[in-house]
Design a protein around this nucleic acid. Structure first.
Lengths: 202, 202
DNA sequence: CATTCATTGCACACTACTGTGCAATCTACG
DNA sequence: CGTAGATTGCACAGTAGTGTGCAATGAATG
């Protein structure tokens, strides 16, 4: 063991193994993004690896999906908590969140489809904490009067960021325009006036 | 043949067969609404019939789904054309459409899930004409200035009525409130001011 | 060099469907 | 009553996936 105990200095072997693992995850995200029903074989092929190898890293399909979901939740939660801490007004915070969420949402667009069917329960469970944070933000906006109250906070937040993922899913070409469109659209449906929404979307 | 040639007077046999067929369709809508991945066996059981019988009425699973989709398109198109003919303003027409669409949307909520994966192409093709009508309505509203233009008409209509189906899907308890909430939410995201949206939603 | 270990290639069992074939059954109809 | 036809029950073939077992390979490691 030449490990210094602080930095997990990986042997070349372990590093190469982690690279394989990461590549599988990245490729899985892309492949499943195109076709949520793709099998382990499709993912393996796309990753330049054999199906058996994928099972070496992820014992089951559910493990792979869970890992992807955990990644997504970690990234998205980080963005939301950061925005929540630095932006006071709820509508401005929402706008900042969506703007920074956009690239992430596009990457993880597959989760929108995977939420239904088979893995729905697992994914839903993992997304729970994030859902609560979103609902809290919307609730805060509704309490301070910047958001309308035509929907209960929980449902409004779900539908609003569902819309973001939906636009991220259908937006194949222009990423920049999509971000602005998604921000404005979600703000509008939360009850923010058009002028204010356009201003917040930069 | 004691048929008078005008009304297709069915024999008791043919009537009973049509009842079976209709029951299968109704039950399939309910079962698939709860679990879009339910198999022919599940549908058959729920309809109080044997799997083989379902195949007697619908040669393949696709035939069943296609029939359900055609039903949905027929009903929804009828509502939309009727509203289009009787209501002038685009935002008012949209509100009237959603209000009358609501119960239908709830019944056919499964199509939202079925649009992705396997039958997506078929369903998409059948929904095509309806999608165009919706896009036309939104375009009309954008041209006359009652709808905002943050999204192209085609995408705006898709996302807006996707939201309606999403709310219909998650709304298990109160149908009446859901209709109003869905109307307001979709109007808001189309850029209609909150006051006007609330007024149009009755 | 000898060892360790990720990866490979192949075989296998298992599950869960779809769609078909066919004889048996029961019922409405003539 | 006799028959046509809808329905049933069961068997069967086919497909497509998941997950496992195991020997062979090849490269990094000590």
């Amino acid at each position: 063991m030449c490990n210094n105990g602080l930095v997990p200095t990986e042997s070349s072997r372990a590093r190469s193994m982690n690279e394989t693992r990461d590549r599988i995850l990245d490729v899985a995200l892309a492949v499943l993004g195109d076709n949520p029903e793709a099998g382990m074989g499709d993912i393996a092929s796309a990753a330049g690896v054999v199906r058996r190898t994928v099972y070496g890293h992820f014992p089951s399909r559910l493990d792979l999906v869970r890992t992807l979901t955990e990644r997504a939740v970690t990234e998205m939660t980080a963005v939301l908590t950061e925005v929540n801490a630095s932006v006071a007004e709820a509508d401005a915070a929402w706008a900042a969140f969506i703007a920074r969420l956009w690239p992430v949402a596009h990457r993880y667009r597959v989760l929108l489809a995977l939420r239904r069917g088979e893995y729905g329960e697992t994914i839903h469970g993992l997304l729970g904490p994030l859902d609560e944070l979103l609902a809290d933000l919307v609730q805060r906006g509704q309490d301070s009067g910047v958001f309308a109250q035509h929907l209960p906070a929980g449902m409004a937040s779900q539908v609003a960021y569902g819309v973001v993922f939906a636009i991220a899913d259908s937006d194949l070409s222009n990423q920049a325009l999509g971000s602005r469109a998604a921000t404005i659209t979600s703000l509008l449906m939360l009850g923010v006036p058009e002028a204010r929404a356009a201003a917040l979307a930069g």
